[in-house]
Design a protein around this nucleic acid. Structure first.
Lengths: 173, 173
DNA sequence: CACAAATGATACTGCATAGTATCATTTGGT
DNA sequence: ACCAAATGATACTATGCAGTATCATTTGTG
C-alpha cells in the first residue's frame, strides 16, 4: 500500500480514504480492468463478415487482451487468491469470462437462425469451445512459463487452427 | 517451513538437511506431483477401444486429475509464481502439460495411420485442441471461482461435448 | 481572512515467516 | 560401551508489509 500510494503520487492517508484496505483497492482495480478489456473484446466481434473472418478477428483480439500485461497479472492473482479475496474469482468469472461466452454465444445464435451454424448446436457450449480452442496453443505456454508474449505470427496460427477446427465441427451440416 | 517440519513430524534442522531452502523443497514436491499425475493420465489412454470411448475415458481422467486438490493447489502457485520460483513454470509446462499433449498426439498419429483421423491433421495441434475442449466448461469456473469440485455428471457432459466436437472436426473425411 | 475538510509525510505497531544458531537427544556402526 | 553423524527442539534475527496513529500542510468555501 505504501508503494502504491507513492507511485500514485499521493499518501497512504488519502489512499485509505478512498479504499478501505488492500482487498477493496484490489477489487476496484480488478473490476475496472475486467470492464475495460471486456468491452474491448465485445466490439471485436464484427457481424458483417463471413464466419471465418469474424472469428479470426475476434480470436486475435481475444488472445491479445488475455496476454496483455494487465490481464495476465490479474489472472495470476485471481488464480492464486481465488480463496483469499472474497468475490474476486466470481467477478473475474462472471464479468470477464462468462461475458465473453455470452457475446460469442449470441453471435452463434444469430448465425444459427441463418443456417450458418449446425441447427443442433448448443450455442453457449460452442462459444466455450471456440474460446478454449483459441487458448490451446501458445497461450498455455505463455501462462505457465511466464515467458514473453508470443509474436503475432504464432497467435495468428493458433487462431487460424481454432477457426478451422471450430468450423469443421460446427459449420452447417 | 516450521509448519511443514511439524506436520511432517520432523524438525527444521532435518528438513533443511534435505532441501536447501523453501524453493528447493517446493520444486521437489512439484516434480513429484507432476510425475505422479502425469503417469496417472498416461495410462488413462487405452488404445484398444473406439476413438469416442477412448477419448471419453481419457478426458474424464484428465479432468479428475486437473481438479484434484494437489494439482489445483500446484497450478495456483505455478500461475502466481511463474516468475518467482525459477524453473517451476517450465517444469510444469514441459513435464506436465506438454507431456499430456505428446501422449495424445502419438495416439492420434497411430490412428491417423489407420485412417481414423483426417489424414491432413496436425496431431500435436489436435491433441492441444482436444485437451483444451475438455477444459472449456466447468473446469474454467472451478479454477476461477475456487468453488468445490464439480460432480461427475458435469464433468462427463463437458467431456462428451469435447469428444463430439473433436470427432466432428478431426474424424475421417 | 478564517475555518473546516481533505491531503500529505512519516513514524510506529503487529504479525507472519524464512533462515540461522545453539544445544540436546537419538541412532547406528564398530 | 563409545563415538560420530543424524535428528530434534527451540530461541533468535531479519525482513516485508498491512494497518494505525500523529501531526503538518494544503485546499476549498463562506
Amino acid at each position: 500500500m505504501s508503494a502504491i500510494a507513492a507511485r500514485a503520487g499521493g499518501s497512504k492517508t488519502t489512499l485509505w480514504s478512498y479504499f478501505h484496505g488492500k482487498p477493496a483497492l484490489f477489487m476496484a482495480v480488478a473490476e475496472d480492468l475486467i470492464d475495460e478489456y471486456g468491452a474491448r473484446i465485445e466490439i471485436a466481434l464484427v457481424r458483417d463478415r463471413p464466419l471465418e473472418e469474424a472469428l479470426g478477428e475476434f480470436g486475435r483480439h481475444l488472445l491479445a487482451a488475455l496476454m496483455s500485461e494487465p490481464i495476465t497479472a490479474l489472472r495470476r492473482i485471481v488464480t492464486a487468491e481465488a480463496h483469499g479475496i472474497a468475490g474476486l474469482g466470481a467477478a473475474f468469472h462472471e464479468q470477464g469470462m462468462a461475458r465473453g461466452w455470452r457475446i460469442v454465444a449470441q453471435y452463434f445464435a444469430d448465425l444459427q437462425q441463418l443456417g450458418r451454424i449446425r441447427s443442433d448446436a448448443d450455442c453457449m457450449r460452442a462459444a466455450q469451445h471456440f474460446i478454449a480452442l483459441c487458448q490451446s496453443g501458445c497461450y498455455q505456454e505463455f501462462m505457465a512459463k511466464g515467458t514473453r508474449k508470443p509474436n503475432a505470427q504464432m497467435i495468428a496460427e493458433d487462431v487460424e487452427a481454432a477457426v478451422n477446427t471450430f468450423c469443421a465441427a460446427y459449420g452447417p451440416n
